[in-house]
Nucleic acid binder design. Structure first.
Lengths: 350, 350
DNA sequence: ATGAAAGCGCTAACAA
DNA sequence: TTGTTAGCGCTTTCAT
């Protein structure tokens, strides 16, 4: 059969082009694939006809045939978190350059949805997966069947799961923030941290503690508060903390969502930043500079994290047997004015 | 051939399951499709074997066969803009419920990338497209070949393009914001708007103007400034405005990115909000409440916009010939304290 | 340099 | 109720 008009669905297939150009489908395929295995005359004719007919190869068919797609998938816990979307941008850029597309899925922080999205992504032909895990336990991920599906973990890396991964130097970042506070003369420092079983929270705490003890600073136990990394939780926790028997003069908040909550609590309590309370945040956001006063924060290299993860995945895709690599990227402190300076104050030891 | 072990790639196909269960692939297909066209015994056996073998249908093959995918695509101009990601969430929720997946693509505000993403999405088998256009001109979109690819426009609707669309009641929202200012006693009101050729900007301006003239308020022409909807632009424009010969006492900013810039300019100039300058913003953001003072803003129903768009697309998908529908969703003003109150001030007419 | 033909994994007529 | 068979649109041997 030599169909010369588009199919009922309006799609023009390789057959139509072949018929029109008077060659076989194989030739069309070759020419379009850029293989120089056709005479110049044929080549030009094919190209022209294809263009004229508005031919667009059906990738689904192509993918079925070649048994893989130039597509990776990423599943993130929160589409509205600028840190995560920053990572996605980085991934996208790198993948785009390499000629790969990216499927973005949203687990919403739910384990079931995460599982489901992973399955869907695989069935949809993703050649590999980027994952910002929403569970800190490794067991689940380990028991998952990753056969022929390379994966790299970003930001959060369940301890004991042997995968390629990229993360921020959390401890270093936290140390930077804490030292900044200390250098400015603060001694009564509290920390608002995330859930204690998250590696990210543990590391940030470690950095904080190290900085404190290195300077011989101590704090009452109630100044270390564990919340949930969310805005509401940060709000409540901060309120409780600041209403407590002893009020700290400086606060290190372990992520941006809780910082938002903390800020609200602070204003509500009528406290001034930084005079009454200095504040540093983990995570720098576009709006940090628009706050009054501008917020000092440690900036995670989100785009870079994404880029690196993409490169890791590409590399693993190309060579399944290469050594597993864990890369950690440095974060840096961007100093604005929410920590003020208390150098003039008498150094009351806590 | 009766393959009983997975293929070299490790994938287990319908054939393996069929062989193992001792039935034909057709039966497997039917059972798994939920068609009750198999005896209970067979049905159970198939289900069990499939589970045991970890069989996951290859969607690529399925899609090729059924000639469509349960997938829609969305292309947005900025993955990091909370308003857009809010829309995406809404879309995702609605589509998920309907059993569809969503491919997210990022045009980055570039026309070429937008074109490209649309093509890719189509070739990747998307059954329909959601689009937040990055160009205000309709010509391009009209001339595009939408054959057999239903599409709905969100937020920005190029005038003259006959498609299903969902958008915010921009004029109403702007009117709300402006009236709020006026009610509070403000008369010296300026507006920081986006590019004049965007429908969104035009509508917000219309709402602003209507509110002003309805109250008999006028303003010097230099108080209407057109910027670019971006942070940097908002910063520059605000600085110029506030340094101008006549300084307004209130400012309506037409989107959130410019508000960020405006805020920075205001602080830099040492102006206090709202005493020296009241500010209302179009777009409400999670951090608006954490600002000092908390920002009064008109909130666009992003999630709802997304949900509605998804429903429109689903409906169009089901019935190509239904009447084109344009839905506009109401926005609402969330009053915080960045506009203060100047009722006590003498009413100097501008 | 080009074509014929086999199949990727699945579904849906059509038979039985 | 179940199996046989013919493709979906493409790429890729294997011939020529």
């Amino acid at each position: 059969m030599k169909p010369t008009a588009p199919t009922p669905t309006g799609q023009v297939t390789i057959k139509h082009v072949a018929a029109q150009a008077g060659v076989s489908t194989a030739t069309i395929s070759r020419v379009l694939a850029g293989k120089n295995a056709a005479s110049l005359a044929v080549r030009n004719r094919v190209l022209r006809v294809a263009r004229e007919m508005g031919y667009e190869p059906n990738r689904i068919a192509r993918n079925l045939r070649v048994r893989h797609r130039k597509v990776f998938g990423i599943v993130i816990p929160d589409l509205q978190n600028p840190f995560f979307t920053g990572i996605v941008r980085g991934v996208e850029e790198a993948l785009h350059q390499a000629g790969y597309a990216l499927l973005i899925a949203n687990s919403d922080g739910s384990a079931e949805r995460e599982d489901n999205e992973i399955r869907v992504l695989r069935a949809d032909g993703a050649a590999g997966l980027l994952l910002i895990p929403c569970r800190p336990e490794a067991e689940h991920y380990i028991s998952f069947d990753w056969t022929s599906l390379p994966v790299v973990a970003i930001d959060r890396v369940p301890a004991g799961w042997a995968v390629d991964s990229v993360k921020t130097a959390n401890a270093d970042g936290a140390r930077l923030a804490t030292e900044h506070l200390i250098k400015l003369g603060h001694v009564e420092i509290a920390m608002l941290n995330g859930p204690a079983h998250y590696d990210v929270a543990q590391e940030r705490l470690a950095g904080f503690s190290n900085a404190m003890t290195a300077r011989g600073l101590t704090m009452p136990p109630e100044w270390l508060v564990h919340s949930d990394f969310r805005q509401e939780g940060g709000y409540e926790a901060t309120k409780a903390l600041l209403r407590g028997p002893r009020r700290p003069r400086a606060l290190f908040v372990a992520n941006y969502l809780m910082t938002l909550g903390a800020l609200m609590a602070i204003y509500e309590l009528g406290l001034r930043i930084p005079q009454d309370l200095a504040i540093v945040s983990f995570d720098d956001m576009p709006w940090a500079a628009a706050l009054n006063p501008p917020l000092t924060a440690v900036a995670q290299p989100a785009r870079e994290l994404g880029r690196t993860a993409a490169e890791l995945l590409l590399a693993r895709h190309a060579d399944r047997s290469r050594a597993i690599r864990q890369v950690v990227l440095q974060s840096n402190l961007v100093v604005r004015s929410s920590c003020g300076s208390v150098q003039a104050r008498p150094e009351v030891h806590a």
